[in-house]
Simulated scan of single mutants.
Amino acid sequence: MTTYIPALTLPQTIFNNPAFSIAFPIALGTAVGYSARHTKRTYLSWKNPPLRPPPWVFGPVWTVLYGTMGYAAYRATFLGTSPLNLPSTIAAAKHGATLYTIQLGLNLAWMPLFFGLRRPIEGTVDCAALLGINAYLAYLWGTKVDEMAGWLMLPYVAWLGFATYLSAGTGYLNGWDLSDENVQKKSN
């Protein structure tokens, strides 16, 4: 179990305001998504596993998930660190804030890893790590800090399970090589 690590944790001011706590991950995710605008064409050029959603699904889904996780982070951190709570609840809330910050960094790294650098192994490992961290974070927040925050994380955890499947499936079906040369060679 990690603990609260101030140097690896977003400032408390981000968690103190629900609107900012929701908007912050949405803004970061939008910036990363915008920087990788050409992913639709790339995504469609790769062999993808069954149940692959159309590209237009990802923007709305991630926007909702980022907003939901931001609100969960607000609830767990702001409410959980109230001086009226038990020391164990405050410690769990701070621990969760560190995990939330780490997972947000991993989340934002996935698209550049997978689409920018075309590193499907690293992208799949990143996604699997996200799944594990967020499953634990949902458990931690839901059982030790704020039950609603834990429940709010479950759609994100479910989507991360699906995203891990898509990452691994795409990597596997393309021989773990997503370079333009490999994709063109396989399509000929």
Rank of each mutant, 00 (worst) to 15 (best):
T2P: 11
M153N: 09
I90H: 08
W62I: 05
A23T: 04
T143H: 13
P83Q: 12
N17H: 06
F58D: 09
T3V: 02
L113Q: 13
A73K: 02
P83C: 01
L160S: 02
W176T: 05
F58P: 02
R37Y: 10
N48E: 09
A109T: 07
L99V: 04
F114N: 02
S88I: 06
A19S: 08
L79T: 06
K47A: 15
P112F: 03
L137Y: 03
L131H: 00
G142H: 08
A23M: 06
Y139Q: 07
N188D: 15
G96K: 06
A138E: 00
I26M: 12
L10K: 08
V125P: 05
P50V: 10
K185H: 14
A168F: 06
K94A: 08
W110E: 08
P120Y: 03
W159T: 11
L152Y: 07
L10N: 04
P53N: 15
W110L: 14
V183N: 14
F20G: 09
K186E: 15
S45A: 15
A93L: 04
L108G: 03
A27F: 09
L178G: 07
P112T: 09
P112L: 07
I5F: 03
S187N: 14
L113R: 08
Y43V: 13
D177E: 08
S45P: 12
Y172L: 13
A135D: 13
D126P: 00
L8R: 06
F58V: 03
A73S: 10
Y136T: 13
Y43D: 15
V64G: 05
L117Y: 14
F114A: 10
T39R: 06
V183A: 13
P49H: 02
A109Y: 04
T164G: 13
L99Q: 03
N16F: 02
A92R: 11
Y66H: 10
P18D: 06
L113K: 02
W62H: 00
G132E: 08
L137N: 03
M1I: 05
G171I: 10
L166Q: 14
A91D: 13
R119I: 14
G116I: 01
I26Y: 00
V57S: 15
I5E: 03
P6C: 05
R118F: 04
V125S: 08
P11Y: 04
F20I: 12
D146Q: 04
G80V: 09
I90R: 14
